[in-house]
Design a protein around this nucleic acid. Structure first.
Length: 890
DNA sequence: ACTCTGCGTAGAGGA
């Protein structure tokens, strides 16, 4: 039996006399989950008292294989020989994190905070691993080495490495692997598989094993190890994979570490054990150690405390991370072993208290987001296949059509879709392909090749393709953290003075006498402001104000002044839109950094491939006066090596502060373009991440901003409400033509429209009823209104329907062929005619209606006609919506 | 309550 639930009491470990001698125990009390059952006390024996030392009330705890017994008429619970105790099992710890924590808890913390920079040993190690996988798939060695090196061309180029020297080194490492593999092959006993992604719901561990041989984990290390035994942290890594296999009912009692550098060493230079492969046994003790280590990490993360490294008795003297450790502990005023071990006081000056608070707060906020990602993982096993499909997170009920081995040893898997379900999955994504049970059954990470009636994916190993799940990733979270680290701990004091409100942004008059845009004063001012900014310029661009055009003109002006410019935005779409405008203005000297399926087709010609000749690729990136990438990509190892004079960030009002910093960290000055009156960043948790840096800065330094006040999208009648409510009446049509535009311009005879749709802005109350997040009667009426516009001569592609809820979007989509989407997804685009379905009846309760910025977005998508469909009573229940109604009914 | 885009997956190592 397993017991699981939140801890209500944690007792101190103590020694007791038993008939076997003196033993230690600790009693913890938990409230069993899923019910109203009374709290129960569990006795944790011997080594599991460790959990009591690290846990605290409030944390979740899981005790497996509990022993139940009767004592004086009461049921008592205790750990048994088979028990494991897991602290905060929902927190998924990476296997590699367990490995670095075993080395030193500070190393774990530092890796997480500062990321692993681009360095040659790591890139080489990655290449050797990939070649290892290829060898297991029986691929030809020379072609594997050639291709794997080519794939890392950009990284190798940035590191100044030549193909031949890398190939020699990789070949020497590969020789060790080949030699060892051939021994196994001779006996014909070995059964291999490579790259196995493993997730453990019970132990809260995830990771990817390099390989399994006869079911036992094999870890490849490209370093050397001349001891007879594998390094302890390497054993722990392999044992962690063994633990997950143990959970799946596959007992594993050995592991193998393969140190490929050993055979490349000269016997006369070195003494020791030069054999590359070292087997070791994995007993229960090692598995328990893995769990206890993992518990230490989970407990530390629960408390968001900072590890000191004191519990490990290794010396800091030889540690590679010593300098980083000194800097981080010095800057943040942390207690750490590195300081204990140093005779002199830490020379690093601490950052001011307000910066420290800022760092701590955002650190916590980002970790909250990480937990939301972990919750996504949990759904892989907690939700049924049907629930996953309803959430658009999986394609289920696939019928396998076949598995075919490719020339490179990987597998192509095909299946037929049995329904027309949609999902978030896109071609090019990495997803979890499974036999129907992604975690408990057989799951493989796979790349989606085709996503039509037939589903085609490629994977390292074959699997019966019955289900395809979105695979959650912590990548964005990790990058937010390194961006925060770089900005606060490594950022220049000058920059931080502005970020923390100690100094107003400064401007030089570089633009004097230059007119950049001659028919729009605000746009021209915006370009001048950006050119003149010594620190930061803020461009506020309400809907339809020519933001993208202004951005392109700004970039050109900056480049003409000799600046190297980074163009960034949250979405690929915004990056590519800005690039398109830049190219429309005749500027082509651009490098686009990003994944192949993220970048729009018409920008692929300027996309920098990662694969190819190192020198050519590195030069292409270095020499580009304009580099464009999403803010997430700005946090990549490659982009973190780049530096710019100016960073220009579009859609800045939709970015979290750390998200914006990922881009601005790379440049001396920055320009943020956005509209804080439209939708804020999407985050899972409610915290400071919801407010953009753009908004904070424009509120702090209004004089460092320009608002584009002429809009080219909406008729006078349509823009009036948004202008008054959100832009203090300052937003105006750019020309008389824009103001006076009308459905007549599309060839529509207004007499052909029903009387209630004749005005450019109308309100219709269909007298429907909200059912969950839908309103079927309202959906019917919306479809009729669409048909009425179509009948009057409006083309279908000129009509758009907006609803707050996805459920209502689906409801309306079933009734019409025009574009229907949520407000959030409509941001950034527009249509001649927009119909908004409000869904709500009776009242407007709900977070979606509370944020009026969402309505600003919805109403400002329309150019010539806007029809609001909703319940008058509900809308009149809130003053803001009441004003909107009065305007629509005018 | 509800909105939902990114990311070469995770891991690759020095002595």
């Amino acid at each position: 039996m397993n017991l699981r639930g939140p801890l209500v009491d944690v007792g101190d470990p103590r020694e007791v006399e038993t008939r076997y001698g003196e033993r230690s125990l600790a009693e913890v009390t938990l409230r069993p989950e899923g019910g109203t059952a009374d709290p129960v006390t569990v006795t944790l024996w011997a080594k599991w008292t460790h959990a009591a030392e690290h846990a605290e009330p409030g944390m979740d705890i899981l005790v497996t294989d509990v022993e139940e017994s009767e004592y004086r008429g009461e049921t008592t619970y205790a750990t048994s020989k088979e028990s494991f105790v897991v602290v905060e099992p929902d927190f998924l710890v990476d296997v590699t994190d367990i490995r670095s924590w075993v080395r030193c808890s500070r190393v774990y913390y530092l890796n997480k905070l500062s990321g692993i920079p681009l360095n040659y040993p790591v890139v080489k190690g990655t290449i050797v691993h990939e070649v290892f996988g290829d060898l297991l798939r029986e691929r030809d060695l020379d072609s594997s080495i050639e291709e794997r090196i080519e794939e890392r061309g950009l990284e190798l180029g940035l590191l100044g490495r030549e193909v031949d020297e890398v190939a020699d080194e990789v070949r020497r490492n590969a020789a060790a692997i080949e030699g060892w593999l051939s021994q196994g092959k001779l006996t014909d006993e070995d059964e291999w598989r490579s790259e196995y992604t493993l997730i453990s719901p019970t132990f809260g561990i995830k990771g990817r094993a390099d390989a399994l041989r006869r079911g036992a984990p094999v870890e490849l290390k490209t370093g050397k190890n001349l001891n007879r035994d594998p390094r302890f942290q390497d054993k722990i890594q392999a044992a962690a994979y063994a633990l997950i296999l143990h959970e799946r009912g596959v007992p594993v009692d050995t592991g193998t570490l393969l140190y490929t550098k050993n055979t490349t060493l000269d016997r006369t230079e070195e003494s020791g054990d030069l054999s590359p492969a070292k087997d070791f046994s994995i007993g229960r003790g090692l598995l328990e150690f893995v769990v206890r280590t993992r518990n230490e990490i989970a407990a530390m993360e629960y408390e968001t405390s900072v590890p000191t490294g004191r519990e490990v008795n290794s010396k800091c003297q030889y540690c590679f991370d010593k300098d980083t450790c000194m800097v981080v502990s010095g800057r943040l005023g942390q207690e750490s072993k590195v300081e204990d071990n140093n005779p002199n006081p830490n020379p690093i000056t601490p950052i001011p208290e307000d910066e420290r608070d800022y760092f701590d707060q955002f650190y916590r906020d980002i970790e909250e987001e990480r937990r939301a990602v972990h919750a996504e993982y949990r759904k892989l096993w907690e939700q049924s296949a049907e629930e996953r499909a309803d959430d658009d997170r999986a394609l289920i009920g696939l019928e396998p059509l076949g598995e075919e081995e490719q020339p490179d040893g990987t597998w192509e898997l095909r299946a037929r879709k049995t329904d027309d379900a949609v999902s978030k999955l896109r071609e090019g994504d990495v997803a979890l392909a499974s036999d129907g049970h992604p975690v408990e059954g057989h799951g493989e990470l796979a790349r989606i090749v085709e996503l039509g009636d037939e589903v085609v994916v490629t994977a390292d190993e074959p699997v019966e393709l019955r289900r395809l799940d979105v695979y959650p990733s912590e990548l964005t979270t990790d990058r937010l953290l390194t961006a925060l680290h770089d900005a606060v701990l490594k950022g220049s004091p000058d920059r931080k003075d502005v970020l923390f409100g100690r100094r107003d942004p400064e401007f030089s008059d570089r633009s004097a006498g230059t007119t950049y845009i001659d028919n729009n004063e605000a746009q021209d001012d915006a370009v001048s402001l950006a050119v003149d900014a010594d620190d930061v310029a803020l461009v506020h661009g309400p809907p339809g104000t020519g933001k993208t055009y202004t951005i392109a003109r700004t970039i050109r002006a900056l480049v003409e002044d000799g600046n190297r410019v980074l163009l960034s935005a949250f979405t690929n779409r915004a990056v590519d839109n800005a690039l398109e405008a830049l190219r429309d203005q005749g500027f082509e000297d651009i490098v686009r950094v990003g994944s192949e399926n993220g970048v729009r087709d018409d920008m692929l010609d300027v996309r920098l491939s990662r694969s190819g000749d190192p020198n050519t690729l590195a030069a292409a990136l270095h020499d580009a006066p304009v580099v464009a990438s999403t803010t997430a990509s700005c946090g990549s190892r490659i982009m973190r090596e780049q530096s710019f004079d100016v960073a220009l960030v579009d859609e800045a009002s939709q970015l979290t502060e750390p998200g914006t910093l990922a881009a601005t960290n790379l440049a001396d000055r920055f320009v943020l373009v956005g509209d804080h009156k439209q939708l804020p960043p999407v985050v899972r948790a409610e915290n400071d991440l919801q407010k953009s840096l753009f908004q904070r800065l424009i509120e702090t330094y209004p004089e460092a901003s320009v608002m584009l006040d002429r809009q080219y999208r909406m008729s006078q009648r349509i823009q009036a409400f948004a202008s008054a409510e959100f832009y203090d009446g300052a937003l105006r049509p750019a020309t008389g033509e824009v103001a006076a535009q009308h459905l007549r311009d599309l060839g529509v005879d207004i007499a052909d429209l029903p009387a209630d749709l004749a005005d450019p802005v109308t309100f219709v109350d269909p007298d429907g009823r909200r059912v969950g997040n839908t309103n079927p009667v309202e959906a019917d009426r919306v479809a009729e209104i669409v048909a009425a516009y179509e009948d009057a001569g409006v083309a279908s592609e000129d009509i758009g329907v907006i609803a707050p809820f996805r459920a209502q979007v689906a409801e309306i989509s079933r009734r019409t062929d025009v574009t229907v989407d949520t407000v959030d997804r409509f941001q950034g685009s527009s249509k001649e005619v927009i119909i908004v379905s409000f869904v709500a009846t009776g009242d407007l309760d709900g977070p979606l209606f509370e944020d009026h910025r969402r309505i600003n977005v919805a109403l400002t998508r329309a150019k010539k006609a806007l029809c609001l469909v909703g319940d008058a009573d509900a809308l009149e229940s809130d003053p803001f919506y009441e004003r909107m109604l009065a305007w629509a009914r005018r």
